[in-house]
Amino acid sequence: MTEPSLQAKNLTLTRGGRLLFANLDFSIARGEALVLRGANGSGKTSLLRVLAGLTMADDGVISWDDAPWKSASSVRRANVLYLGHANALKDELTAAENLADGLGFDGMTISAENQHRALERVGLMARRDLPARRLSQGQKRRIGLARLLLTQKPLWLLDEPTNALDADGVALFTDIVDEHLARGGMACIATHLTMQIHAPVRELNLAESA
Protein backbone atom coordinates (compact mmCIF):
# COMPACT_ATOMS: atom_id res chain seq x y z
CA MET A 1 0.00 0.00 0.00
CA THR A 2 2.93 2.34 0.24
CA GLU A 3 4.44 2.29 -3.25
CA PRO A 4 2.27 4.12 -5.75
CA SER A 5 1.65 1.76 -8.61
CA LEU A 6 0.47 4.10 -11.31
CA GLN A 7 2.10 7.44 -11.52
CA ALA A 8 1.42 10.27 -13.92
CA LYS A 9 3.77 13.19 -14.15
CA ASN A 10 3.36 16.39 -16.03
CA LEU A 11 0.52 15.18 -18.27
CA THR A 12 -0.55 17.75 -20.83
CA LEU A 13 -3.16 17.35 -23.52
CA THR A 14 -4.55 19.66 -26.18
CA ARG A 15 -7.51 18.57 -28.25
CA GLY A 16 -8.82 20.46 -31.25
CA GLY A 17 -6.68 23.46 -30.34
CA ARG A 18 -8.04 23.57 -26.77
CA LEU A 19 -5.87 22.92 -23.74
CA LEU A 20 -7.68 20.26 -21.65
CA PHE A 21 -5.16 19.85 -18.87
CA ALA A 22 -1.57 20.86 -18.28
CA ASN A 23 1.17 19.52 -16.01
CA LEU A 24 -1.14 17.11 -14.27
CA ASP A 25 0.51 15.00 -11.53
CA PHE A 26 -1.21 12.19 -9.71
CA SER A 27 -0.74 8.61 -8.60
CA ILE A 28 -2.90 5.65 -7.77
CA ALA A 29 -1.66 3.13 -5.20
CA ARG A 30 -2.77 -0.48 -4.90
CA GLY A 31 -6.12 -0.71 -3.18
CA GLU A 32 -6.89 2.89 -3.98
CA ALA A 33 -9.40 4.66 -6.18
CA LEU A 34 -9.01 7.97 -7.95
CA VAL A 35 -12.24 9.76 -8.76
CA LEU A 36 -12.14 12.26 -11.62
CA ARG A 37 -14.38 15.26 -11.29
CA GLY A 38 -15.06 18.16 -13.56
CA ALA A 39 -17.72 19.72 -15.74
CA ASN A 40 -18.71 18.28 -19.11
CA GLY A 41 -15.88 18.78 -21.56
CA SER A 42 -13.27 19.26 -18.85
CA GLY A 43 -11.27 16.33 -20.19
CA LYS A 44 -12.24 13.42 -17.93
CA THR A 45 -12.80 11.05 -20.83
CA SER A 46 -9.64 12.26 -22.56
CA LEU A 47 -7.59 11.63 -19.43
CA LEU A 48 -8.96 8.09 -19.14
CA ARG A 49 -8.15 7.50 -22.80
CA VAL A 50 -4.62 8.76 -22.23
CA LEU A 51 -4.24 6.33 -19.32
CA ALA A 52 -5.67 3.51 -21.45
CA GLY A 53 -3.14 4.25 -24.17
CA LEU A 54 -5.71 5.25 -26.77
CA THR A 55 -4.76 8.91 -26.92
CA MET A 56 -1.21 10.21 -26.90
CA ALA A 57 -0.59 12.97 -24.42
CA ASP A 58 1.31 15.98 -25.76
CA ASP A 59 3.66 15.81 -22.84
CA GLY A 60 4.26 13.88 -19.65
CA VAL A 61 5.10 10.40 -18.46
CA ILE A 62 2.93 7.61 -17.11
CA SER A 63 4.76 4.93 -15.20
CA TRP A 64 3.71 1.60 -13.79
CA ASP A 65 5.65 0.29 -10.82
CA ASP A 66 8.25 2.95 -11.60
CA ALA A 67 8.77 1.80 -15.20
CA PRO A 68 7.59 4.22 -17.89
CA TRP A 69 4.66 3.06 -19.93
CA LYS A 70 4.77 3.26 -23.69
CA SER A 71 1.48 3.83 -25.42
CA ALA A 72 1.12 0.34 -26.82
CA SER A 73 3.29 -1.72 -24.50
CA SER A 74 2.11 -5.23 -23.76
CA VAL A 75 2.44 -4.64 -20.00
CA ARG A 76 -0.03 -1.82 -20.28
CA ARG A 77 -2.47 -3.83 -22.36
CA ALA A 78 -2.28 -6.74 -19.92
CA ASN A 79 -3.06 -4.58 -16.90
CA VAL A 80 -5.65 -2.08 -18.03
CA LEU A 81 -9.38 -2.55 -18.33
CA TYR A 82 -11.26 0.36 -19.84
CA LEU A 83 -15.02 0.77 -19.88
CA GLY A 84 -15.90 3.75 -22.04
CA HIS A 85 -19.01 5.80 -22.67
CA ALA A 86 -20.12 3.37 -25.32
CA ASN A 87 -20.93 -0.13 -24.12
CA ALA A 88 -18.92 -1.92 -26.81
CA LEU A 89 -21.76 -4.39 -27.20
CA LYS A 90 -23.01 -6.00 -30.38
CA ASP A 91 -26.77 -5.81 -30.84
CA GLU A 92 -26.81 -9.10 -32.71
CA LEU A 93 -25.05 -11.07 -29.97
CA THR A 94 -26.63 -12.25 -26.73
CA ALA A 95 -25.69 -10.89 -23.34
CA ALA A 96 -23.66 -14.02 -22.61
CA GLU A 97 -21.86 -13.91 -25.96
CA ASN A 98 -21.05 -10.24 -25.55
CA LEU A 99 -19.59 -10.93 -22.13
CA ALA A 100 -17.53 -13.87 -23.38
CA ASP A 101 -16.21 -11.85 -26.34
CA GLY A 102 -15.27 -8.90 -24.15
CA LEU A 103 -13.26 -11.16 -21.86
CA GLY A 104 -11.94 -13.15 -24.81
CA PHE A 105 -10.24 -10.09 -26.24
CA ASP A 106 -8.77 -9.53 -22.78
CA GLY A 107 -7.15 -12.94 -23.19
CA MET A 108 -9.49 -14.92 -20.94
CA THR A 109 -11.90 -17.77 -21.25
CA ILE A 110 -14.51 -18.31 -18.57
CA SER A 111 -16.24 -21.44 -17.45
CA ALA A 112 -20.01 -21.58 -17.78
CA GLU A 113 -20.52 -21.63 -14.01
CA ASN A 114 -18.36 -18.56 -13.44
CA GLN A 115 -20.21 -16.77 -16.18
CA HIS A 116 -23.54 -17.77 -14.69
CA ARG A 117 -22.49 -16.63 -11.26
CA ALA A 118 -21.51 -13.22 -12.61
CA LEU A 119 -24.66 -12.83 -14.68
CA GLU A 120 -26.73 -13.90 -11.68
CA ARG A 121 -25.14 -11.26 -9.51
CA VAL A 122 -25.73 -8.44 -11.98
CA GLY A 123 -29.31 -9.66 -12.48
CA LEU A 124 -29.05 -10.72 -16.10
CA MET A 125 -29.26 -14.48 -15.69
CA ALA A 126 -32.82 -14.68 -17.02
CA ARG A 127 -31.90 -12.53 -20.02
CA ARG A 128 -28.57 -14.05 -20.85
CA ASP A 129 -29.73 -15.46 -24.18
CA LEU A 130 -31.48 -12.35 -25.41
CA PRO A 131 -29.74 -10.36 -28.13
CA ALA A 132 -28.30 -7.17 -26.68
CA ARG A 133 -30.63 -5.06 -28.81
CA ARG A 134 -33.53 -6.23 -26.60
CA LEU A 135 -31.84 -5.10 -23.38
CA SER A 136 -32.46 -1.73 -21.76
CA GLN A 137 -29.64 0.81 -21.39
CA GLY A 138 -29.22 -0.08 -17.73
CA GLN A 139 -29.09 -3.80 -18.51
CA LYS A 140 -26.44 -3.19 -21.16
CA ARG A 141 -24.45 -1.33 -18.57
CA ARG A 142 -24.78 -4.35 -16.27
CA ILE A 143 -23.01 -6.54 -18.81
CA GLY A 144 -20.06 -4.24 -18.20
CA LEU A 145 -20.42 -4.87 -14.46
CA ALA A 146 -20.32 -8.62 -15.09
CA ARG A 147 -17.10 -8.09 -17.01
CA LEU A 148 -15.65 -6.25 -14.01
CA LEU A 149 -16.61 -9.22 -11.82
CA LEU A 150 -14.75 -11.65 -14.02
CA THR A 151 -11.68 -9.75 -15.13
CA GLN A 152 -8.31 -10.18 -13.47
CA LYS A 153 -6.84 -6.92 -14.63
CA PRO A 154 -5.60 -4.74 -11.78
CA LEU A 155 -6.26 -1.25 -13.15
CA TRP A 156 -9.82 -0.27 -14.01
CA LEU A 157 -10.49 2.88 -16.01
CA LEU A 158 -14.20 3.61 -15.84
CA ASP A 159 -15.96 6.41 -17.69
CA GLU A 160 -19.30 7.34 -16.10
CA PRO A 161 -19.89 3.71 -15.14
CA THR A 162 -23.15 4.46 -13.32
CA ASN A 163 -24.85 6.12 -16.29
CA ALA A 164 -28.28 4.59 -16.87
CA LEU A 165 -27.95 2.37 -13.78
CA ASP A 166 -30.77 2.37 -11.22
CA ALA A 167 -30.18 2.74 -7.47
CA ASP A 168 -29.65 -1.00 -7.08
CA GLY A 169 -27.21 -0.98 -9.94
CA VAL A 170 -25.19 1.87 -8.41
CA ALA A 171 -25.03 -0.01 -5.10
CA LEU A 172 -23.93 -3.14 -6.90
CA PHE A 173 -21.28 -1.19 -8.77
CA THR A 174 -19.95 0.29 -5.53
CA ASP A 175 -19.73 -3.18 -4.01
CA ILE A 176 -17.85 -4.54 -7.00
CA VAL A 177 -15.34 -1.68 -6.90
CA ASP A 178 -14.91 -2.13 -3.15
CA GLU A 179 -14.15 -5.84 -3.55
CA HIS A 180 -11.67 -5.06 -6.29
CA LEU A 181 -9.87 -2.48 -4.17
CA ALA A 182 -9.87 -4.80 -1.16
CA ARG A 183 -7.99 -7.33 -3.30
CA GLY A 184 -5.36 -4.68 -4.02
CA GLY A 185 -6.80 -3.51 -7.29
CA MET A 186 -6.86 0.05 -8.54
CA ALA A 187 -9.56 2.14 -10.16
CA CYS A 188 -9.80 5.49 -11.87
CA ILE A 189 -13.43 6.54 -12.14
CA ALA A 190 -14.88 9.55 -13.93
CA THR A 191 -18.24 10.32 -12.39
CA HIS A 192 -20.62 13.02 -11.19
CA LEU A 193 -22.03 10.91 -8.38
CA THR A 194 -20.73 10.73 -4.83
CA MET A 195 -20.11 7.08 -4.23
CA GLN A 196 -19.91 5.24 -0.96
CA ILE A 197 -16.61 3.54 -1.60
CA HIS A 198 -14.99 2.30 1.62
CA ALA A 199 -11.42 2.08 0.38
CA PRO A 200 -9.22 5.17 0.26
CA VAL A 201 -10.46 7.53 -2.44
CA ARG A 202 -8.67 10.49 -3.86
CA GLU A 203 -10.29 13.11 -5.99
CA LEU A 204 -8.88 14.95 -8.94
CA ASN A 205 -10.77 17.97 -10.16
CA LEU A 206 -9.94 18.65 -13.77
CA ALA A 207 -11.64 22.01 -13.95
CA GLU A 208 -9.01 23.38 -11.57
CA SER A 209 -5.99 22.02 -13.36
CA ALA A 210 -6.50 23.68 -16.74
Binding site: L54, R77, Y82, G84, H85, L89, F105, D106
Partner: peptide
Protein backbone atom coordinates in the same frame (compact mmCIF):
# COMPACT_ATOMS: atom_id res chain seq x y z
CA UNK B 1 -17.67 1.41 -38.90
CA UNK B 2 -19.92 -0.44 -36.42
CA UNK B 3 -17.04 -1.32 -34.13
CA UNK B 4 -15.98 2.31 -34.18
CA UNK B 5 -19.47 3.60 -33.40
CA UNK B 6 -20.25 1.24 -30.51
CA UNK B 7 -16.89 1.45 -28.77
CA UNK B 8 -15.73 -2.05 -29.66
CA UNK B 9 -12.79 -0.76 -31.67
CA UNK B 10 -11.39 0.99 -28.59
CA UNK B 11 -11.62 -2.27 -26.69
CA UNK B 12 -9.83 -4.09 -29.48
CA UNK B 13 -7.12 -1.45 -29.58
CA UNK B 14 -6.23 -1.93 -25.92
CA UNK B 15 -6.62 -5.69 -25.97
CA UNK B 16 -3.46 -7.64 -25.11
CA UNK B 17 -3.59 -9.03 -28.65
CA UNK B 18 -1.63 -6.82 -31.06
CA UNK B 19 -3.89 -4.71 -33.23
CA UNK B 20 -2.28 -6.08 -36.40
CA UNK B 21 -3.37 -9.58 -35.45
CA UNK B 22 -6.94 -8.54 -34.72
Amino acid sequence: ANDYADGTLEQLAISPYPMAVI
